[in-house]
Amino acid sequence: MFSPQGPSLRELTVQALSSVERGYDLLAPKFDYTPFRTPDSILGATTQALSARGPFTDGLDVCCGSGAGMSVLRSLCQGRTIGVDFSAGMLAQAKSAHPDATWVRADVRAMPFAPRFDLAVSFGALGHFLPEELPALFEGVHRALRPGGLFAFPIGTMPPRTAVAHWVTLGFDLTMRVRNAVWRPPFVMYYRTNPLRDVLTDLTTAGFAAESVALTELGQHGDGSPRCQLILARKPLAAAPA
Rank of each mutant, 00 (worst) to 15 (best):
F208T: 09
V199P: 09
R179S: 04
G171S: 12
H166A: 00
W167M: 10
V188T: 15
E217I: 09
A206G: 04
V168L: 15
G156Q: 03
R179I: 03
Y190R: 07
M158Q: 07
L218C: 05
L196E: 14
M176D: 06
Y191G: 15
L145Y: 12
D173M: 11
L200R: 06
L215S: 06
R192F: 10
R197Y: 05
L215H: 05
T201M: 08
P160M: 03
D173Q: 05
Y191S: 15
L174T: 12
A214S: 15
P160D: 01
R192K: 13
G148H: 02
I155F: 03
Y191M: 15
N180K: 13
G148D: 01
P185S: 01
F153A: 06
G148R: 00
A181I: 07
L203N: 13
A163C: 11
G156D: 01
P195L: 04
L203M: 11
L150H: 14
E211F: 10
D198M: 14
V199K: 12
I155E: 05
G148K: 04
G149N: 07
A181K: 10
T193D: 01
T162I: 09
R177L: 05
G207K: 13
R161E: 15
A206H: 03
A214Y: 08
T169L: 11
L150I: 14
V213R: 04
P147K: 12
V199W: 06
F153S: 03
L200Y: 11
N194Y: 10
E217T: 14
M158E: 07
M189T: 04
P186Y: 09
L150W: 14
T193Y: 06
L218P: 02
A152L: 09
L174R: 13
F208M: 08
L218V: 01
T201V: 11
G171P: 12
V188F: 11
L196Y: 09
P160I: 04
M158T: 13
A210L: 00
P195I: 00
G148M: 02
N180P: 14
F151R: 00
T204E: 15
G156V: 05
R184T: 15
L215W: 02
A144Y: 01
P154W: 10
P195Q: 02
T193A: 00
V164S: 06
V188G: 09
V168G: 12
G207F: 13
L145P: 13
A165I: 05
